[in-house]
Design a protein around this nucleic acid. Structure first.
Length: 424
RNA sequence: GGAGAGGUGGCAGAGUGGUAAUGCAGCAGCCUGCUAAGCUGUGACCGAUUUAUUGGUCCCCGAGUUCGAAUCUCGGUCUCUCCGCCA
């Protein structure tokens, strides 16, 4: 969430930045500032009461030690009233703080200067397009047909055993999946990311830390009995490693990566959007995360974009990169690049990666800071990106690399999957 | 799942009702005739402010008892040991 300090000092800049998201924030922010002032005033009053009561207690302590019980008893009488007064003030302070937080949590991150205003995905800016040709063949088979023909994925079986959106991968389909994961992880390792295998289930504090809670409560599977959430992305456990952590400046940047399954309820999706591998309740993804010094987060964002470009080039897939406009960006992000691969049979773009800089928005919730040269604690910047999400990559591989007899595996991937084509 | 023990600063470690000893490490300053020793300071969070200071909170978390809680009571959580179950 946004910091109070930022709202106090840069009220107008925040309002105009949020306007890029079509969020009208002036009223909320002014209400927050009012509550903030109120809270501080209450705290001053409370501190005074506590100071007086502390000093009396201390004096009683001295008298007791000296054995002057009568004097101590008479002094106790003076303390009556402090308790009511202080608990009333505590309550008032807590109320103001709760109200303030409730409002603060509703404000999304401020988009960075480069981000266009824009209303929807229509207004995203294409910043790059690869040289790979986008086949637009009426003859191209959709991936669900290819998957069936070569028995790579069984959607019906998944529906029987679990439900729609939970496919089985079989035989070469499973190997392809495993090979892709290894390919992505090893490329990340070469780029200096340390691999983690995190828990696939997290507690509510972690969900709050990265911003899934309270905003996107309904997106995650929740295990009521233990109050735990299945992760919608490895971003959640990986970034929460740094919750309540103070790093030293030389620890920065931290670069980590991890493969996990991701679980999303995706309530309300339907139609061609969810056909085949387009949208699943469980899918595999390799995620990269960086924790950086504020001065270099945008340079690192560029590095991450380059890294993902390298992966897609290795897979020889046609793709484009979009800089999301204010209206289409996620709640917590200050700037996001989406990667989309071309689906030859569906003749449309499929999102396979989203690379974002959250600046201090997550760090503020996480309380992840570093000690700067002056010994002051400052919030870090957090970034993450998919590198990459598997199902749509698999779909694009099957559709774009098909020939008359089957599917050709791109050279870079062959060592990881152990075969160079499917069929034929 | 059952029984027991425990959680104090970066680390070690005292503290059974009067407001957190001591040691080590790190950092900064001072001193010093040399790989040293010594001395001083040293956290986080929320505030006030004349930026020199200054109030409050923090002994795993939350409630309670008390003028006063690291210390007593209740609940939670995590760690360790033993038993049971188990890939």
């Amino acid at each position: 969430m946004l910091t109070l300090q930022c709202l106090r000092e840069e009220r107008d800049r925040v309002i105009s930045a949020l306007a890029k998201r079509h969020v009208e924030s002036a009223t909320t922010i002014d209400e927050i500032l009012k509550l903030d002032a109120q809270r501080r005033a209450t705290q001053n009053e409370l501190d005074q009461v506590l100071a007086e009561s502390n000093s009396l207690s201390r004096q009683i302590g001295v008298l007791m030690r000296e054995g002057k019980k009568d004097e101590a008893e008479s002094m106790k009488i003076q303390t009556s009233g402090f308790k009511d007064k202080s608990s009333a003030l505590k309550q008032a302070m807590e109320d103001a703080e709760n109200q303030l937080n409730e409002l603060l949590v509703q404000l999304p991150n401020t988009p960075c200067d480069l981000v266009e205003a824009g209303k929807s995905s229509e207004d995203n800016v294409e910043v790059f397009r690869s040289d790979e040709p986008q086949e637009a063949g009426g003859h191209a088979k959709p991936h669900w047909d290819i998957a069936k023909e070569f028995d790579l994925i069984d959607f019906d079986l998944g529906a029987k055993v679990t439900g729609a959106g939970f496919p089985f991968y079989k035989g070469r389909g499973a190997k392809l999946q495993r090979g892709l994961i290894r390919f992505f992880l090893e490329r990340a390792e070469e780029a200096g990311y340390t691999e983690y295998i995190p828990p696939h289930v997290v507690n509510a504090d972690s969900g709050y830390g990265t911003g899934q809670l309270p905003d996107k409560e309904g997106q995650m599977y929740h295990m009521q009995e233990d109050d735990l959430y299945m992760i919608p992305t490895a971003e959640v456990p990986l970034t929460n490693i740094f919750r309540d952590v103070v790093l030293t400046e030389s620890d920065l940047p931290q670069k980590l990566c991890g493969y996990t399954p991701c679980f999303r309820r995706e309530a309300g999706s339907y139609g061609k959007d969810v056909r085949g591998l387009n949208r699943l309740h469980q899918f595999d993804k390799v995620e990269i995360v960086q924790i950086t010094h504020p001065s270099e987060s945008y340079a690192k964002l560029d590095n991450m974009v380059e890294h993902v470009k390298g992966l897609l080039a290795g897979l020889e897939l046609p793709y484009r990169i979009l800089r999301l406009c204010g209206g289409d960006m996620g709640f917590t992000s200050a700037m996001t690049y989406d990667f989309e691969v071309w689906s030859a049979a569906q003749e449309r773009w499929l999102e396979v990666s989203s690379v974002s800089n959250f600046e201090t928005f997550q760090a503020n919730r996480l309380k992840c800071r570093f000690k700067d040269v002056d010994g002051k604690n400052k919030l870090v910047h957090t970034l993450n990106g998919s590198a990459l999400a598997l199902p749509r990559i698999l779909a694009a591989l099957l559709e774009n690399h098909q020939d008359h007899e089957g599917v050709v595996i791109p050279k870079a991937l062959v060592p990881y999957v152990g075969f160079n084509r499917i069929g034929g």
